[in-house]
Design a protein around this nucleic acid. Structure first.
Lengths: 206, 206, 206, 206
DNA sequence: AATGAATGAGGATTCATTCAT
DNA sequence: GATGAATGAATCCTCATTCAT
C-alpha cells in the first residue's frame, strides 16, 4: 500500500518506456477530458498517442493502468511544481504566496485536475490507495506551512484546526478547476485567488 | 434548456410512475455508490429495484435517464430540506445556522452527493445543463443570505465577493462528503461544521 | 469435485435452456470435429447453432462451458446407451455382447469421441475432474461385468487384473474412433469388433 | 507428401540450427505439456528456450513448425530407441521383449507422447500426413515381428489380423501414457507391462 | 546471427435496448 | 403493465509475425 503501484511492461528499454508513457498520458488526458475514462477506448488512446493498440499494450497491462499512470503523473507534476516554491519563514506572506503558487498551478493544469478527481474512483483498489496517499501528501504540504506560521506566532490554531484548514485550502483551489464553467465568467484566476486569500485567511466578516 | 428535462414513459398511471421511479432511484444510488454509473448495468438496477429489465424500460428511455432521475431527485431533496430553513433577518447568526443546516443535510446524504458529483458528467448535454442550473440555484440560496447580511450591514462585501463566498460555502460542505475517508478520522460532523464556520466567517488569523 | 459442475445461465426457462443447449452442443461438436476447440470461435458456434452471439452467452459463461457441455452430453449419451444393455449372467457371451454393444456405440459416435478426448484437456480444472470421474465410471461398467464373470467361474483374474482389463477394453474401443483413418481401410466395424474380441478374450497365441 | 516436411530457416550454420532446435523442442514440450499447444505462446517458447522471439523466428516460419519439430523429434527418438532392439528369431519371447522394450520407452517419454497425440491434430495438412506416416511405421515395426512369429509357426494369424494386433500393441502402450493419472495408482510400469503381455498374447480366459 | 519493439487482425465477452408474449 | 429472451454493436486484450538495428 505504501509502495508505488507498479505497471508492468513487456518492453525493456527504460528510456523508451518513459517516452511512450508520456505520449500515452498526454493522449489519455485529452481524451478523458472530453469523454471520460469509460467512454474513451483503448484504441482511441493508442491512436491519439500515435501508435498502435498492440504497442499500447506493450507498455501497460490493463486500461486501468493508463488511468493510474495519468493520476500518478499529475500528482508528480504538481508536487514538483509546488516544491519549487517552499517558503520557510513562517510569515503570513509566505502562506499567501504558497496559496498563490498552488492556485496558479491548478489554473495551468485544470483539465488534468478535473480528469484525476472525476476518474480516480475507477482505479483498482491498491492503485486508488496509492493515489489517496498522494492526495494526503498535498494536504501535508500546506499543513506544514500552517504549522510554521503557528510556531512563528502568526497564527493561533490547534493541530486539528491546522489540518482541516489545509484541506480547505487544497479543496478551494480545486474548486477553480471544477467550477470554471461558472467562476470564470465572473473572475480571472488572479481575482479568484486574491478573493479566496482574503476570506480564507482573514474571514469575510468586516 | 431551461425547462425540466423530460423522461419519457410508456406507462400512463402517474402514481405508478412515481412509485417505480422511487424504487429505481434508490436502487441506482446504492449501485452507483459502489460501482459507479458505468459499471452498474441496467439489469442490476432493475433487479435491485425489484422488477424486470423490461419493466425498467417502461419507465425510462435510456440508461442515462436513470442517472438524470437520480441527480434530479437528489437536488430536489436538498432543495426541499434547505427550504425548510430560510432565515430572513440578515444576521450573522442566521448565516451560521444556514450553514449548519446545509452541512447536516450533506452529512445525511453524503452517498447521494458523491454519486451525483462523480457521475453527472455522464449526463447527456441538455440534462447536464439542467443539473448545472440546479447547482447554481443552490449557490444562489447562500448568495441571498449573504446579500441579506450585507444589506443589514453585518457584512461588507461586493456582489462579486458574495457570489464567490456562496460558492465557497457550498463547496466546503461537499468537502465533507468527498473527503469523509480522511476527515471523519479526525472530526465529527459537528466539529467539522463549527471549525469551518470559524474560518470561513471569521478567518484563521488570530 | 464430486458434484456436477454447474454452467450458469441468465435464462430461467428450463425447457428453453435444454433446447438451446442441445443446439449449441450439436453445433460445437461439428465445429470442434473440423477445427478443434481453440480454432472454433464462439461466433461460429452461435451461428452454427442458429442464434446470435448474445444469445449464446445467455446460456453459458465462458467458451470452456461449451466444451464442458459437449463432454458431459457425450458421456451421458454413452452411459444411457450402455445402460440399455446390462448383462447379468456372468457368462463370457455376456461380456462379448457388452463389448459388441460398446463398440457399436463408439462407431455411431466416433466424431464425438474424438472431440471429447482431444479437447477435454482444455477444460478448467474442476470440470476436468468431473469428466475424468465419468471416464472412470465407464471403466467400472466393464469391470463389473468382468467381476461377474470371475464370480461365475468363467474367468480367473485378480481384482487388479480385472480393472486393468476393463481399461483395455475401453481403450481398444476408442482406438476405432481415433484410428479410423487407418483401420477403416482394412476392416469394417464388425470385423474389427470380432477380431478384437478374439484377441482380447482369447489371446493371439494359437 | 511422402517426403520429410521441411522447416525453412534463415540461418545457414547446420550445427547451430540443430542446437537451437533442440533447445526449442525441449522448451516446447515442457510448455505444451502444461498448457497445450494453443495456450503456449511463441514468446514463452523462445524465453524457455533461452533466446529471443526474434531468434526463434530465425529457425522456424510459423508456430506450427515448432509443433512439427516436436512431433518429428519424438518419433525419431522412439524409432531410434526401438531400433536398438530388433529381435529376429520369430519366437514369442522376442515379441514379449519387444513389447517390454516399447513400453519402457513410453514410460520414459510419456510427457512427450501425450503432447504429441494431443496436439498433432493442430499440424498443417501435409505435416500431419507426414506424422501419420510415421505412426504407421511404428505399427509396422510390430507387424513385422508378428509376421516373423507367424512364419516361424509361433502364431497363427492372417495378415489382416497381424496388422490389427500391431495397432493394438501400439495403442495399449500409449494407454500407459494417457491413463497414467488412473493406472499408476494401481500398477507399476513393470506390473502393467506383464499384465498386458499376459492378456494380449495369451488372452484373459482361464 | 541476435534482438526486441511494433503491428493489427482476430477473438472472447458484455450489456443497453427491443419486442413478442 | 410486466416479463425476460434475443440481439449485435462495441470493447478489451492477445499474440503470431515482421523488420530495423
Amino acid at each position: 500500500m505504501d509502495k508505488k503501484h507498479e505497471v508492468l511492461t513487456t518492453v525493456k528499454d527504460e528510456n523508451l518506456i518513459e517516452k511512450r508513457r508520456q505520449q500515452m498520458i498526454q493522449a489519455a488526458v485529452s481524451l478523458f477530458k472530453v469523454k471520460g475514462f469509460h467512454r474513451a477506448t483503448t484504441r482511441e488512446i493508442a491512436k491519439e498517442a500515435g501508435f498502435s493498440i498492440g504497442t499500447l499494450y506493450e507498455y501497460i497491462r490493463t486500461k486501468e493502468d493508463v488511468l493510474y499512470l495519468v493520476c500518478d503523473s499529475i500528482y508528480n507534476e504538481v508536487h514538483t511544481k509546488l516544491s519549487e516554491f517552499t517558503p520557510e519563514n513562517g510569515t503570513l506572506e509566505d502562506l499567501e504566496n504558497a496559496v498563490r503558487h498552488y492556485y496558479s498551478v491548478i489554473d495551468d493544469m485544470s483539465d488534468e485536475f478535473v480528469v484525476m478527481y472525476q476518474e480516480s474512483k475507477s482505479l483498482p483498489k491498491n492503485a486508488l490507495e496509492y493515489v489517496l496517499k498522494k492526495e494526503l501528501e498535498m494536504v501535508e504540504i500546506f499543513q506544514k506551512i500552517l504549522v510554521g506560521c503557528i510556531q512563528a506566532g502568526e497564527l493561533e490554531l490547534t493541530e486539528a484546526q491546522a489540518k482541516l484548514y489545509a484541506h480547505t485550502l487544497v479543496v478551494q483551489g480545486q474548486m477553480w478547476a471544477f467550477r470554471r464553467w461558472a467562476l470564470s465568467k465572473e473572475y480571472s484566476i488572479e481575482q479568484f485567488t486574491e478573493l479566496q486569500i482574503q476570506v480564507l485567511l482573514y474571514g469575510m466578516k468586516k
